[in-house]
Design a protein around this nucleic acid. Structure first.
Length: 306
DNA sequence: TCCCAGGTCCTAC
DNA sequence: GTAGGACCTGGG
């Protein structure tokens, strides 16, 4: 299997620890060697080369898939030049050089971020692994240990509540069921948002999936739009971004007392993310990701791992 | 043991 | 319309 070159501005240790994706694992202490399970494939990255170690279908077209998954067409230098003049953002970009927003499968991304609700990152990864091991197809590979693809909507729609609960999804089980049933019944078509603008794609997903105990609120929706549909204006606001915006951008964004609690209303969310899009520009999603990483790193340095 | 986690939904006011 | 609480479960 010949190896495929990755984008020049790409640091796996940054990209895979940025909370965009939950199925990449460092296999050396220096974090230069990684294994990931992506869309039915087992991939390995060593420095800047990528190999395919296993797949549901060995004839898969990696030459096409890899540039798309790693968003090779993104001109990161141009994106950074488009950012506003902000010292905090400049230092974040410097600290996390090599970051890219990857382009994942929307279904896996959506369910992963539904699983992320009120969980920490290690717990999210574990939950997704358990779902895959229980409901996903086994991937043929030469490596020790078994690898499983992320389960298909059809399989999850048939899962019983007890089966889902055994994977640690907790109260999110009903969300997972509803969403997969909507896809199986064609009431929701995850291909549609590709062709829509950010605003319309968001309207589509929210109209199909918000309320009615579907579990997709503004934050989960923005994560799907940014991390799988590559809508780079999307600016997901979570607890970390709330802290970041209120500590560093309260004046620039004219925010008043965001941090009432560890949550914001959907109206405040929409207002705040609109201001952030205006301030950070067309690539606000990239700015968000740099800021997310810096805010977490600063917090961890001050008070230990979170 | 306790607090909190890449939020969302529901209820009471 | 919105503030406050509940929610499964597990990591630290």
């Amino acid at each position: 299997m010949k190896s495929i070159n990755l984008p020049r501005e790409f640091d796996p240790a940054v990209v895979f620890q940025s909370g965009q994706t939950f199925r990449w694992y460092a296999i050396d202490t220096l974090k230069s060697d990684w294994i990931g399970i992506v869309s039915g494939r087992v991939l390995r990255i060593r420095r800047h080369d990528l190999e395919l170690l296993g797949s549901l279908n060995m004839n898969q077209d990696l030459e096409h898939f890899i540039p798309s998954y790693f968003s090779s067409a993104d001109d990161v230098e141009m994106i950074e030049r488009s950012f506003p003049d902000s010292q905090y953002l400049v230092s974040a970009v410097k600290q996390f050089r090599g970051l890219r927003l990857i382009t994942q499968d929307p279904w896996e991304c959506l369910i992963s971020f539904v699983c992320s609700i009120n969980k920490n990152i290690p717990a999210i990864s574990k939950c997704i692994e358990m779902l895959s091991a229980r409901f996903g197809e086994k991937i043929r590979s030469d490596l020790d240990g078994d690898f499983f693809a992320f389960p298909e909507p059809k399989r999850l729609s048939k899962a019983t509540d007890d089966e889902l609960l055994s994977c640690g999804v907790g109260f999110r089980s009903k969300y997972i069921k509803y969403i997969s049933e909507k896809i199986v019944s064609s009431a929701l078509d995850l291909r549609i948002p590709y062709a829509l603008s950010y605003a319309n794609a968001r309207k589509y997903l929210i109209s199909k999936l918000s309320g009615l105990t579907m579990g997709v609120g503004p934050k989960v929706c923005d994560c799907a739009l940014l991390f799988s549909y590559h809508k780079l204006e999307a600016f997901p606001i979570d607890v970390w971004m709330l802290r970041c915006l209120s500590s560093h951008y309260a004046k620039e964004l004219k925010l008043n007392s965001l941090m009432r609690r560890n949550a914001i209303s959907s109206k405040t969310y929409d207002l705040t993310s609109a201001k952030a899009r205006e301030y950070f520009g067309n690539y606000a999603g990239y700015a968000q990701q740099y800021l997310y990483m810096k805010t977490r790193a600063d917090t961890i340095r001050n008070r230990g791992p979170v």
